[in-house]
Design a protein around this nucleic acid. Structure first.
Length: 492
RNA sequence: GCCCCCAUCGUCUAGAGGACCAGGACAUCGGCCUUUCAAGCCGGUGACAGGGGUUCGAAUCCCCUUGGGGGCACCA
């Protein structure tokens, strides 16, 4: 078994592309087969130089590796189509010699006009096969004129073709509905159709797993294999990923946020930047269109590999359950060792402009590990640790029931109690403050709330005693002083 | 317009004729726990698009309707 993922480097890797790559990879590994990365860069006008790197690094990030590809080589190379141009030209010529393809001199103006007329007449649209009917003299004349031409495939006039699809069963098409598609463009480069078939044949690809949108051209591809006398591959057209609204395939910013408030991410790198872990993203993707079984939602790719069958893939198009990704990412974050989580979160804190202290971060990470769903969220939970001068609304220091004066008194007492402590260890801090709660006759939540604001500048923050311990005596006392200062001004 | 694909809770899915008055997960809503927020635990609401067949029996098979999606480029 040999499978391939064949992206076109026209932009950053789309999440749908990543899912297609994953299904290919999963099945290749399941079979103990070979997984190939091939770059379909035959469209020179849409080529984006940075795209290849984005695709390669994106797949690597997800944990998808390939046995053959542009960067690792292999016995069936080269793996970039732009380097195989001669091959396509050769086989296009061969098809013409066999009478299975023909040169077409129709201009794009004529084609546009044709489409326009067909559209108005509400009839069948498509090339009218004008050049297929040219007689030898006309062909000779046009050839000697040096006018640019394309090569088109001759679709059999009648009959039908079925393609074998592991996900949907056989799909049959009538030849009258098919078009004489372009094989070779006038710039001498092949179209997807030609390059794809030629490469898949010579790279001995046995299973083609690609998106649903390719179904309409699949019979044409199969007909080409037949024309070449090559063995047809087996297809598996994976379901499309839809926009959160369910309208149209997932595309850039039809909608910036889902109804539940998650950001609509489209490119794989956006998921990475948003602070999702690769294990979570890949697990998430595997759950769309496929199910692990046994009601199990959380699993590694190693666990999924023996169970993955293309015939089990659900053919229905789906939207991405972004809220489930948040949950799943939280699951993986909670499973991460504190040191590894600290390492993963650090770039996000630094990107927010915070001067990160590794020791302090490591102390604080266990406090937020079960509170964050993405690495990026670590920023809003921990920023106060790395800032010297806290800026917050002083009125937050006033506990409603306790009142301004009471709150000020409480803070003063807290300062005294903590200043007397030599050991700033979590249990000690808690014991000391709970004793103070009893002495002051307030509720724990009331006192702790005031201290929380004084120390973090926030009403929602990591657990208080651990935070005090992480911050250390000097910084805690300094913040209490600042709070007392602010509050006394407020009281007066 | 033509061709093709698809159709189970809000969402992702399990279900391949009887084990289904349809299971799980996320989300949501209650409750417990609790120093805030989470996490965790317990519980609730919630779906076979509609209509015809086939069959003793249909979410599962067939047909039609409806709805959604894809394609109809010298793009992939």
């Amino acid at each position: 078994m040999r499978l391939r993922f064949a992206p076109s480097p026209t932009g950053p890797l789309h999440i749908g592309g990543a899912r297609t790559a994953l299904f290919n990879w999963l099945y290749a590994r399941h079979c103990g087969g070979v997984f190939v990365l091939r770059i379909e860069d035959t469209d020179r006008s849409r080529l984006v130089p940075e795209a290849l790197d984005d695709i390669v690094s994106g797949l690597r990030w997800l944990g998808i590796d390939w046995d053959e590809g542009p960067d690792v080589g292999g016995p069936y190379g080269p793996y970039c189509q732009s380097e195989r141009a001669d091959l396509y030209r050769h086989w296009a010529r061969w098809l013409i010699e066999q009478g299975q393809a023909y040169k077409c001199w129709c201009t794009s103006e004529r084609l546009d006009m044709l489409r326009h007329v067909q559209h108005q007449e509400k009839g069948k649209v498509g090339y009218d096969r004008h050049c297929r009917r040219l007689d030898p003299t006309q062909v000779a004349q046009l050839e000697s004129s040096g006018a640019p031409y394309v090569v088109r495939f001759k679709v059999p006039a009648s009959g039908g073709t079925s393609i074998q699809d592991l996900i949907r069963g056989d799909i049959t098409f009538q030849h009258e509905q098919l078009e004489d598609l372009v094989l070779l463009k006038s710039d001498g480069f092949p179209t997807y159709h030609l390059a794809n078939v030629v490469d898949d044949h010579f790279m001995e690809i046995t299973h083609i797993v690609r998106a649903d949108e390719w179904i309409p051209t699949a019979p044409l591809h199969v007909l080409m294999y037949d024309a070449f006398g090559w063995k047809r591959p087996v297809y598996a057209h994976a379901p499309l990923i839809l926009n959160p609204s369910g309208k149209g395939k997932l595309s850039k910013r039809t909608q910036a946020f889902t109804d539940e408030g998650q950001e609509v991410l489209v490119q794989l790198r956006e998921f990475r930047r948003a602070g999702y872990l690769p294990e979570a993203v890949v697990n998430f993707l595997a759950n769309v269109g496929w199910a692990f079984g046994d009601d199990q939602e959380v699993f590694t790719m190693e666990q999924a590999t023996p169970r993955f069958e293309l015939s089990d893939v659900n053919p229905a198009p789906a939207r991405l359950p972004y809220s489930k990704l948040d949950w799943l990412n939280g699951v993986y974050i909670r499973e991460l060792e504190p040191s590894r989580l600290a390492t993963a979160a650090k770039p996000f804190l630094e990107a927010a402009g915070l001067p990160v202290d590794d020791g302090l971060l490591l102390k604080a990470i266990p406090l937020v590990r079960e509170r964050i769903k993405t690495l990026r969220e670590a920023v809003s939970w921990l920023d106060f640790l790395f800032i010297d001068q806290l800026a917050y609304d002083p009125s937050l220091l006033v506990e409603n029931r306790v009142g301004p004066a009471g709150s000020l008194l409480a803070l003063t007492r807290v300062r005294e109690v903590l200043a007397a402590l030599t050991d700033f260890e979590t249990e000690r801090l808690e014991a000391a403050l709970r004793t103070l709660v009893a002495d002051l006759g307030v509720k724990p939540a009331q006192l702790f709330g005031i201290v929380r604001v004084a120390v973090s500048g926030k009403t929602v923050a990591p657990p208080l005693f651990g935070t005090l311990g992480a911050l250390g005596k000097d910084r805690v006392l300094a913040r209490l002083d600042q709070a007392i200062n602010l509050l006394s001004r407020l009281v007066m």
